[in-house]
Design a protein around this nucleic acid. Structure first.
Lengths: 237, 237
DNA sequence: CGCCGTTTTGAAGACAGTCAAGATGCGTGG
DNA sequence: CCACGCATCTTGACTGTCTTCAAAACGGCG
């Protein structure tokens, strides 16, 4: 589960710290200090990174890849809470608040992680208080996303939820395409369903409807072209 | 731990700072410094404290009373996101992240607020970095609540959502009663509905069902006795 | 006591969930 | 490169539950 991608190791560490928003306020020297604290680890698709209820002793930062954070409902179904990508982190409340992990985390593809141990992280925060402020900003952003999710789930229309998630994926993973925006979906239909709180089949049906309406075009199961972004946006507001 | 309650105004400032978790790590002298920065304000039931999309320039801490935070859905209905009580705060992302307010806030009853202006707050955080850590803990707690809300809304059963919200109110506002736990509801039926993402009538119906089952007893419209807490809890897990 | 706003109840309709079967996509191995 | 087979996705029919609209009951407050 371990790996050094470029041989020298040091520069890929640097890459990691450079790319992570919470360290963006630090200078060369400070970054180098942070870099020395980092332990790296690699996970393959489907591997579990943390379990809900466990007591992680690291702050985990995603350097490359995608990670889903989820809980199980009482019926045993997954409820996906977050989709983490490059630069995102988790484990902060365990280290700072002494809480147990609120969700499980699983790699959706080959994923490189940077981990900072509890004591190192606590020292780090003490030494560079700006890091706390960055973390606060990130947590606020996460809160805003969840608030929007709650709003979407509260306003019942399934149409709006689907549109919302398509736009989210589009912003994160969309690339230009002659016909519109090409989006590579990070989830299967089942995953999308779990992310927006719906049944697999409902997602299928609504996507088909959107395709019939000329709003999207599906290419296989993993790609979608957004032909008419405005139509999607219109449903939300 | 000293308690001031002499009514001299200055002391009630102290009360405020003493009661607020994010200042709990500070000593007498430091608290006194914070106290001098605070501006107090009172709102009556129904008054709007902040509007979604505005640019608040204060951190707002609730010293007494209850505040609901909400957004409007595209259909013009309220979606309540948070119910803030004594010691809760909001406005942090506006001050630290430069963002606009993500929700409107309205006083549910006579409410006393402590407000700290942007520049004072920024100085405060610089001077006492532990405050950031407290804020992070609070934000994490808030995230966890929202995560649970998303989970509840995702797992469709309306029964679970009602049970969940009753238990939440019970923990926050419940008092002992010979028959069980007496809960004074902070919201009307409409408010509860907006909080859990349901229709007014659905809330009525499910509460009636719970009463018929002997799980709760309604007293007027604003009070409920939880007769069988375990029955409620059982629905959740 | 009487009014007005809120809540409850009723009935009809819509929509998503479930179960089941069929189609499609995708990776494997020949 | 093609063919096979499994996993995933789509489609269909049906059921259950929430929503909506409407009317009646209730509660709180002057």
């Amino acid at each position: 589960m371990k790996q050094d991608s470029c041989g020298c190791g040091k520069c890929s560490h640097k890459q990691c710290t450079n790319r992570v928003p919470i360290f963006s306020g630090l200078n060369e020297e400070e970054l180098s200090y942070v870099t020395d604290l980092i332990k790296r680890r690699q996970y393959l698709k489907g591997e579990i990174i943390q379990l809900e209820g466990s007591e992680p002793d690291c702050l985990t930062i995603i350097n490359r890849g995608k990670v889903k954070a989820f809980r199980y409902t009482q019926e045993g179904k997954e409820q996906i809470l977050y989709l983490f990508s490059e630069g995102d982190f988790f484990g902060e409340n365990n280290l700072l608040g002494g809480k147990r992990a609120a969700y499980s985390a699983e790699a959706l593809e080959q994923t490189n992680l940077c981990m900072i141990e509890r004591k190192d992280f606590q020292e780090l925060v003490r030494r560079y208080p700006e890091i706390s402020l960055k973390i606060i900003q990130e947590l606020c952003a996460r809160l805003e996303r969840l608030e929007t999710t709650v709003q979407n789930m509260g306003s019942k229309t399934m149409e709006a939820r689907i549109g919302s998630v398509l736009l989210e994926f589009s912003e994160k993973y969309g690339v230009k395409h002659p016909k519109g925006i090409l989006v590579t979906l990070p989830f299967s239909r089942e995953g999308i369903a779990s992310y927006i709180g719906a049944a697999r089949e409902t997602v299928s049906r609504r996507l088909t409807l959107l395709q019939d309406a000329g709003t999207i075009e599906m290419i296989g199961n993993k790609k979608i072209i957004l032909l008419d972004e405005d139509a999607l946006r219109k449903e939300l507001e």
